[in-house]
């Protein structure tokens, strides 16, 4: 019952940036859904549209960015139809967001407590100052900040990077939102701090029953925390599935390339890292066919002419590649034809 109800459904979302040089289709028709209490990872390289997509959910898209199509249903309501005031009440209250750089995301001229309390009071006018402060201290303790009663009156510059990100998380969760969007929350942090923050987010997700959309380019982080993964390339979701499917049975050549280019310590045979050749496409002039085509080792003529449709690979595992439309050969997946192609 609960399983079937979706918290968030994104359908055919299109976002464009209208720059002087022309329309940049940053997000070009993506669809996915997110259940209650689920952690979805969105992976992709810089410029793949993963952050843009998240900003459009929370209504933070800045001019010249504009949603040009599709819908975003949050508990059945299309948030794209919200007016400014409704969107404001929605932000921070139902959905909140944490960002990449904790060093610049907190206002330097106000105390941490002030900024935490503001998140609370701007959605609930009735709450008293003392209550808000008590809640702020409680949240700081929850995210593992020692001596929270004193820390609450300090300024951001008195906090370290990791602590600031903790404070950001506390601020994001203070209104008990149903969805937390984390936009590369660990990228700017030291590796050890990264691990701590991830651990904290995992804990909090269980404690608070929050769904999370976790945006990152770091596959290791995805494996750590996510239930499902969407892989984005140039404004499209190229592959989507459960985390184990994506990691152990990747189907799309881009996903494969991404995994092959990530160092892994858990594998016994330490393969060489294989970089993905070429550079991401120019979104101002996207190719006619598959966006990944020009960089793909298995690229076929059709790939340069037609965008590949999704192939359903079972258990919600989908992938958009023409290779999936070929006969399987002796038990191997179609993609195994890669070697042939290379030898040819």
């Amino acid at each position: 019952m609960e399983e079937n109800r979706k918290l968030l459904e994104v359908k055919d979302l299109k976002v464009s940036f209208f720059t002087p040089a022309g329309e940049v289709k940053a997000v070009n028709g993506i669809s996915y859904s997110l259940g209650y209490n689920e952690v979805m990872g969105i992976v992709g390289e810089s410029g793949s549209g993963k952050s843009v997509e998240a900003y459009s959910i929370i209504g933070l898209l800045q001019s010249p960015g504009k949603v040009t199509g599709g819908s975003i249903l949050f508990e059945g309501e299309n948030v794209l139809e919200y007016d400014a005031e409704k969107m404001r009440q929605f932000r921070g209250n139902k959905v909140s967001m944490i960002f990449q750089n904790p060093m610049t995301c907190l206002n330097p001229v106000y105390t941490i407590g002030n900024q935490l309390m503001e998140a609370l009071t701007c959605h609930d006018k009735s709450i008293s100052k003392e209550q808000a402060k008590a809640r702020a201290i409680q949240m700081l303790e929850l995210v593992g900040i020692n001596n929270a009663a004193k820390r609450v009156d300090q300024y951001p510059h008195e906090f370290s990077g990791g602590m600031r990100q903790r404070a950001m998380i506390a601020m994001a969760l203070i209104c008990e939102p149903k969805l937390l969007i984390a936009d590369e929350p660990t990228t700017a942090l030291d590796v050890t701090i990264q691990a701590q923050i991830l651990e904290l987010m995992k804990d909090l997700q269980k404690k608070e029953n929050t769904s999370i959309i976790f945006i990152t380019h770091n596959l290791g982080v995805v494996a750590e925390i996510c239930d499902r993964v969407s892989v984005m390339y140039a404004g499209h979701i190229v592959e989507q599935g459960l985390v184990q499917d994506i990691f152990y049975r990747p189907q799309h050549p881009y996903t494969k390339g991404l995994i092959a280019s990530t160092p892994r310590l858990d594998e016994e045979d330490q393969e060489r890292l294989v970089p993905i050749e070429g550079t991401p496409i120019d979104l101002l002039n996207p190719p006619k066919g598959c966006n990944f085509g020009p960089r793909c080792k298995n690229c076929m003529k059709i790939c340069l002419r037609e965008k590949p449709p999704y192939a359903d690979l079972g258990e919600g595992h989908i992938s958009a590649c023409w290779l999936h439309f070929m006969k399987q050969k002796s038990g191997k997946t179609a993609l195994a034809g890669k070697e042939n192609a290379a030898n040819e």
Binding site: C299, K301, R305
Partner: peptide, 28 residues
Amino acid sequence: PFQVDPDKIPQNFDLNEEDFMPAEEAEK
């Protein structure tokens, strides 16, 4: 060199086998 499974191809595409030949580098 690939084996195309015609049944799997969505109906709205009209494709032939030539399309599934590897693309030339120059084309890419």
